[in-house]
Design a protein around this nucleic acid. Structure first.
Lengths: 195, 195
DNA sequence: GTTAGTTTACCGACCAGATGGTACAGTAAA
DNA sequence: TTTACTGTACCATCTGGTCGGTAAACTAAC
């Protein structure tokens, strides 16, 4: 009966429990008591590791980010030298739903609605992505639009509002991927192919 | 001291008050008491008009939709005969932020996170947009991607995560608009301009 | 046209449950 | 001795929602 764990393990166990709760019962039922029960910790132990509910949610978001990061880097590194590696890595991550459980993302979104600064870590990521994408592209605006499109598809899926079947979404993602992998000499190219 | 108003007026007054509350104090503070106070109604009167908080939020969403609809139709009608009228109307609505107050949308989003079926009216709209866009386009996938991109930009702005300045966003929207207004003979056109 | 009954629209006190958080005494491993 | 908890009791507050009451407005009978 080893009581002692190191604190990092405990925190991870708690975050796991929180994710299970939210995945099973939805964002509305993410309460300290529920997480305590699910994790096996006492409420005191929970609040010892995360001094507030807000801290817990911050922890969830941070871990989510930390989990996606290596996967993204892997993609990006494998595309080094080719066009738009970061953009394509983002698209790929969204495509294979590295974005984890819908409920978890929704819970974080809901929390963000109540306390906007909770999303700051995400904002930082977006900022970094923005800079990387710009630096790698021949056609900044097109790349940003492709990014926005991928993001839009992700949000639709997140909110369960995608009006088309999964295979269509898949095809769209492939086309995005394809568009991101071609080089363009100038912004204007696309705009010129008018009938 | 006419006590009697017709119910529709009361409901509208209450929805106005709810919007003011949420715009001023954020989604977290959208409580029945706050809305009652802001609207001048008693809590009982409020709950007479909206039998539950959920009903109130549904009302807010519905009115939001009802307000944007005529504006969209106007745009669309003015583009009749030209390519992609619906898509372009959507883009235009997003561009000039017909999407109303950020806080209001966030409140609805937050509510949707807790009770997903609350977003059903929105889903219906998306479904209709989807059908309309498909029917009007020469290049279904491209149109859907442009739609997704516009949506992505909207969500970024909604969550206050747009990493680029407003003028860049404006330029992106213009490009979207432009891309939506050109005819394409085949999907492949775009894909072919590879270096 | 007055009276009586019914409905509509609203008031405001009260309530029950949930929830985040505290306090604190104890305990066991490192 | 410090760290990392357990466990319980407790609490203040908030919040959605109920409920009995009430006055104006509408309806209908006389």
């Amino acid at each position: 009966m080893s009581k002692r764990k190191n604190s990092a393990d405990s925190r991870n166990d708690i975050l796991d429990a929180a994710q299970r709760v939210v995945a099973r019962e939805g964002a509305a039922n993410l309460t300290l008591d529920a997480v305590a029960k699910e994790s096996g910790f006492s409420k005191g132990g929970l609040l010892y590791n995360f001094p507030s509910k807000e801290a817990l949610i911050q922890g969830m978001l941070q871990r989510l980010i930390d989990n996606v990061e290596p996967q993204m880097n892997e993609y990006r590194d494998s595309l080094a030298g080719q066009p738009n590696p970061t953009l394509r890595a983002i698209i790929e991550c969204i495509r294979c739903e590295a974005v984890i459980d819908r409920n978890i993302s929704m819970a974080i979104l809901a929390a963000g609605a109540q306390n906007p600064q909770l999303l700051d870590p995400l904002r930082q990521r977006y900022d970094q992505h923005y800079k990387d994408i710009l630096q790698e592209t021949d056609d900044p605006d097109l790349s940003l639009l492709l990014w926005a499109a991928a993001d839009g598809l992700m949000f639709m899926s997140l909110l369960d509002m995608t009006p088309f079947p999964a295979e269509d979404a898949e095809r769209l993602m492939q086309r995005l991927r394809h568009m991101a992998s071609t080089r363009h000499e100038k912004s204007v190219i696309i705009d010129n192919i008018v009938s």
